[in-house]
Write a protein that binds this DNA or RNA. Sequence first.
DNA 1: GGGAATGTTCAGTTTTGATTGAACGCAGAT
DNA 2: ATCTGCGTTCAATCAAAACTGAACATTCCC
Lengths: 152, 152
Amino acid sequence: MTPPISRTRADFIAYMGQALEAKGLSPIAGRMLGLLIFDGAPRSFSDLATELGVSRGSISANARHLLARGAIVKQNRPGDRQDYFCVAEQSLDQILTELIARMTETSEAVRGFAEALPSDEGARRRLCGLADFYAAMAGGVTQALQRLGMRR
Amino acid sequence: MTPPISRTRADFIAYMGQALEAKGLSPIAGRMLGLLIFDGAPRSFSDLATELGVSRGSISANARHLLARGAIVKQNRPGDRQDYFCVAEQSLDQILTELIARMTETSEAVRGFAEALPSDEGARRRLCGLADFYAAMAGGVTQALQRLGMRR
DNA sequence: GGGAATGTTCAGTTTTGATTGAACGCAGAT
DNA sequence: ATCTGCGTTCAATCAAAACTGAACATTCCC
C-alpha cells in the first residue's frame, strides 16, 4: 500500500514541475526545485542533467534563473570542479518577499492611474478599490511570512 | 500636467494587460478586464472587439474564459440580442477565493506526498514544511479577503 | 602538450499558446 | 423566404518560449 520512496519522489518532482509552471517558472526549473527540495542535499550539475533527463544547456540556463531569483544556492568544493546546488535556506521566505514586493508595486501603479483622474470620475473610485485590493493581498502575505518566521 | 482621461484609460488598460499576463491570463483577457474595470458599466460584445482592436473570435474565447473564472458576468437585455459584459460584483473576492482554493489544494497535495513517506525520511519533514508554507499563504490571503469584506 | 571533465553560449528546432478570419448556426426583422 | 446581426467554432497562422546539441573556453590531470 505504501509506494516505494523513489516513486513518491518522482511523482513529487513531476507535481512540482506543474505547480510551479503555473507560477511562471519553466517546467525544468520547477522540476529542478522539486528535486532539490525533496533531496534536501546539494546535487551536482551533471546529476541534475541526468536525473531530470535534460540537456546540460537547460540546466545551465535554468540554474542561472533560479539563482537570480534567490531560490537556490550554488556551492563549490575544493578539489571538485563541479557546481553543486541546493535550495536556499530562506528560499521560501525569499519567494514570498518578492511576491509582496510585486503586489505592492502593482498597488502603487494602479493608485497612480487613479490619482491621474479627477475625483468626480467614477473610475477613480474603482481603481482605488483595485489598489486597495492589491495592498490587502500584500498585507495578507506579509502576515503569512511573519507567521512562518515565527514557527522557526 | 493632468493627462486627458482617455489617455489614462488607455494606459491603464495596457498596464492591466501586462500585469494580468504575469498571472496566467492571456493579453486580451487582461485588457478586457482592465477596460471593464475602468468603465465600470456593461460593455457590448462588439464594443469590446472594436475598442480592443481584436477579432470577435478572440472576444468569444476570452470572455468564455473570464466567465468561467467568475471574473466577469454576462448580461442579456430584452429586445437586444447582444451580449453585455461587466466585472462581477464580487469579482475580486471571487479571484481571491479561487486563489485560496488553489493554494490549499497544493498544500494538501504536498502533504499527501509527505505522508506517503516513512517518518524517518528527512524528505518528509521538508515536504511538510512546504505544505505549511502553502497553508500559511492561504491563511494570509484569507485574512486579506476578510479585511476587504469588512471595508465594504 | 594532449586529453578529459565542466559549465556556458548560441543557433536551430520543437513546442506551446494566442490570435485571426472564414464558415457556420441561430434568431429576429423585412 | 431572405436577409442581417450576433456569437461560436475551428483550421491555419503567428509569435514566443523552451529545449537541444554542438562548439567553445577553461581547468585540471596525466
